[in-house]
Design a protein around this nucleic acid. Sequence first.
RNA 1: GGCCAGUUGGUGAAGUGGCUUAACACACUGCCCUUUCACGGCAGCAUUCAUGGGUCCGAAUCCCGUACUGGUCACCA
Length: 550
Amino acid sequence: MTLKDLADIMFPDVTLTVDEIEKRYPERDLEEGAEVTRFAPSPTGFVHMGSLLSAFQDFKLAKDTKGIFYLRIEDTDTLRTVENGISGIISDLANFDIYPDEGMISETESIGNYGPYIQSERKKIYHAYAKYLVEKGLAYPCFCSKESLDETRKIQELNKERIGYYGSYARCRTLSVDEAYEKIKNGEEFVVRFKSMGDFNNKITLNDRMRGKIEFPENDMDIVIIKSNDKLPTYHFAHAIDDHLMHTTTVMRGEEWIPSYPIHHDLFKTLGFKEPLYAHLGLVLKIDENGTRRKLSKRKDPEASVSFYHEKGIPPEATKLYLMTIANSNFEEWFLSNPTGKLTDFKMDFSKMSESGSLFDVEKLFNISKNYISRMTSQELYDKSLPWMEEYDKELFELMKKYSDYTKAIFNIERGGEKPRKDYASFSDIRGGIWYMYDELFKDVNYEYQKVTDIDEIKKILNLYFNEYYDINDDKDTWFSKMKEMTEKLGYASNMKDYKKNPENYKGNVADISTVIRVSITSRSQTPDLYEILKLLGIDRIKTRINMIK
RNA sequence: GGCCAGUUGGUGAAGUGGCUUAACACACUGCCCUUUCACGGCAGCAUUCAUGGGUCCGAAUCCCGUACUGGUCACCA
């Protein structure tokens, strides 16, 4: 029996040779310096904040360098794979304006010449390489049971030795070709393990694009490369094969991958592949109940999921700005000096990317979102919030649609210019800010009167104001001087400074008067500019609302 | 336990040996502006960079030890 015989019986279905495969994945024809990056999630449902961050950085790097960004689906863990998981990921990405140049574009379709882009469909390719390794004596079948592996582990723990399948613990490594062949022939289950030639006492160095040099002991673990039940590859093996064939130049991934670098290095070296560059991103953390930091978890933390922010009505662009600020330490400053700048104008710099995990700060996200929304035109705000309303606030959606011009005019109050009004951190804040503008919603309201609460006084003010002073055609200055005039007439102070000096001389001040009007017409003590509000509501609505006051 | 990473205010952080008695932003507090709220303006908020030692005329920045936090050691990615 030869290694060739063993390889044949292990992989009876392999028809392609490694050389043939290599020919199908030629070098990419790209400009000097162009980066090929990828986002490679498992289709477990939806995209997590941390993965979105890396997807966005990958996308950005490819765009910055006129390279290629592709989407590869890592579905080698069949247990975790979720129905329609791929379209979920694609739509989450699209929501953030991230479109792959290559790779999956729907549940089943892909674009690009370096596919298939779903790992489960690349089985033959992995098998061809695994077979090649077996033939070369660089991989072997392993028949160890779960139980015996557990036992080994216990012994290692007891002896305070390194845990794993290596050295004399790698029992199947020394099995003769004949023995292995016989076992397979008899139908014994096996995994394929990589035969590491590494030595734990040697050092290897990873030159991380963000972190610089990191030193490790060389890998000497005979890791599993092909699993027994479905014969799919493990992550490590698929990573080496795929990123080699697809010619990825830079792999960005979470720092939880740093420890497995020696394995990847070993694999690339043994297979004769050129290693990609790596950048290990800091994790996105949160503080849990015990006050300690931990990785945001998709399962435990609702705020980890990208859809959480969508539901809240945070514009995706704002989330993107936030992620940029936590991932790139120089981004915030850049953005402050280029508030209207396009994200594409910002150039990424690995040395400015943050290495330590950052706490996810919802307050900061809200602030960024608030600023972002305040810079929209009323038309933009209308267009972007409408679809959100359709999904989450049907009632307001209908009104916004029915009275579209009116709604846009409402949005336009104190919008535009140098210092726009900043009162919406999310689309879900809109209702609270404008509901009273619609008659349909202005029912059974609670009036939030402040200092003046006496109903007779209120009525007196309203009657005087709307019968003798208010004219919808007045410009703002005239409008306000009339307000002051009436204020004086009623025995209130029109000048705040005078009032502050001698409050006892007055019944109140002009602010109290406008508050009465504001509350009577809108029920709310806090609204945008009253002049604009009155004008927009129009005299008919105003009259109706005055009559509602009992 | 082994290996690896990280550690600058409540938070994100700037900082790469003297320009730092530590920038900027968020949050918070106070004042001012103001017809409400918001906006805006001003001020306050780390004498100190986890800690101990060392190098140096000089250290948040370089070196060594320690501590703490996180990650990882699967036929999960």
